[in-house]
Structure formats: structure tokens, C-alpha cells
Amino acid sequence: MAAIFEAFRFKQKATFMHSLDPRTTFFMAVSFSIIGMLFLQIIPLLLVFISMAPFILLARSTRQWFKSLQGLAILAGFILIINSFFISFSFAISTVLRLVVLMTAFSLFFLTVHPDDFALALIKMHIPYEFAFAFSMAVRYVPTIATETETIRDAQMSRGLELERGNILQKVRNYIPILIPIIVSSIRRALQVAESLESRAFGSTAKRTSLYDLSLRKRDYAMLLVTTFALIFALYVAFVVRIQFPFLLPDWFFWGLPF
């Protein structure tokens, strides 16, 4: 269960992707997500996915990314079964692909952007400091909560809890002894953090200055440009070509399994 968090655990590495400005990476993640949401056909989604693969490789984070996909396996399984049952197998596959695309887009972001840089980027984008800080704190605590989840699971298993026991309903209920301690200890921690922030005069000055500043470099402009083109192209295909001139699109675009 905790494997899914692996995708969002930042690790400092000296790679091209890590060296990009957080705003660039954020724009890329959002663009890829939008593109992923535009299509619901297998081949276009596969193409989106394939075009993202080089960035995962560039970030040298393939293993972490793959681990998170494994964490997603149960959810993907559910989607696959339910959709095949109610709609079609083809639709089920494309829905799973879309999920993978969204997940990949955001894991690319979280794997390569340090939470502090992300807060800085938000402030640069004129988001009030309190919000930016709250967001970066939330991101910052994901790995902490992931580790805690593992400890809690260990503690409950030591008391004889068997997660795999019983039917589906029972299996869901088996997670209650894990979920409640996570929630309770997260709330406790939130209160502690709030107190500790206030005791260190959080919010005492209206205008904060920061020690480091962000700046866009050539490589950022290059990536922004490429991503913008990709986004415009996808929007054009989705809203203009697909609706007004669908006959212009090749057959493989709409390819799906007959069931």
C-alpha cells in the first residue's frame, strides 16, 4: 500500500530533470495531465505515455516510478474489472492508461522538485505565502506518513492482524486499525507543527524574502516551448480535428478491441 508513495518521494540527483526550474516541471506535469485527459483511446494515450518515458529516464527515477506503478496495481485492477464489466474491455484499458499517464506526470514532478523549491515557485506565481507553505508542508509530509504507515501496519500485524483475511468487505474493514492511527497521529502532528510554527513567529512579517531565488534558464525555456507546442497540438487535435474533421484522423487513432 505504501509503495504508491514511492512515486512522490523526492530524491536529490544531478540530472537534467532535477536541474529544471520547478515552474517548468509543474507546467510539464499539468500539460501532460491535460493531454492525458483529452483522449480516451488506447493508441493516443499510449503515445502520450511513450512521449513521457524519456523524461522519467532522464530523471533517472525509473525504479521509483515503477514501484509506484506496482502500488497502483490494485486500483488499476479494480478499474479494469468494473469497466470491462459495465462498459467494455477497450474502455477499461484506456482508463487504466489514463490513470498511468496522470500518475506518471505527477510523479515526474514530485520526484524531481524539492518541496521547498516548489513553495518558492508557488510564491513566484503570486500564490499567498501561507497557501504555498501549506502546500509544500503537505508534500513534505507524504514520505513521513508513508514511513509511519509501514510502522503502524507492522504494529498491528504484530497483534495478529491479517490484512488478507475474509471477503472483500472484510478486507476493507481490516484496514481500519491502520487508517485510524494514521489519521490520529497526523492530526496530532499537525497541531504540534502549528504550535511550533507559531512559537517561531510564523506570519509575523507581511512580506517575506527568501534566501534563494528561482530563475528560468535556457533549458527551461526550451522545455516550456516544446511542452506548449505539444499541448497546443493535442488541444487542436482533440477539439478541432476530432470534432470537425474526424475523417482526417488515421484509423489507428480510434483503434480499439472489439469487446
Binding site: 503502524i152 504494529a155 498491528q156 500485524m157 504484530s158 492482524l161 486499525p177 492511527p181 490520529v184 497521529s185
Partner: peptide
């Protein structure tokens, strides 16, 4: 064997009580 099976023989009290209280 599994942890659940060993739980009858081996009791384990974790460091932080908040990690196991839920009821």
C-alpha cells in the same frame, strides 16, 4: 510462517503507542 501466526508466541510493543491505538 506469517507474523499473524507468530503473534501468539511473540508479543511486540512498539516504541510509539500512537502507532497501534485505534479502537
Amino acid at each position: 510462517t506469517s507474523t499473524a501466526q507468530l503473534a501468539k508466541t511473540v508479543g511486540f510493543v512498539f516504541q510509539n503507542a500512537d502507532h497501534q491505538l485505534f479502537a
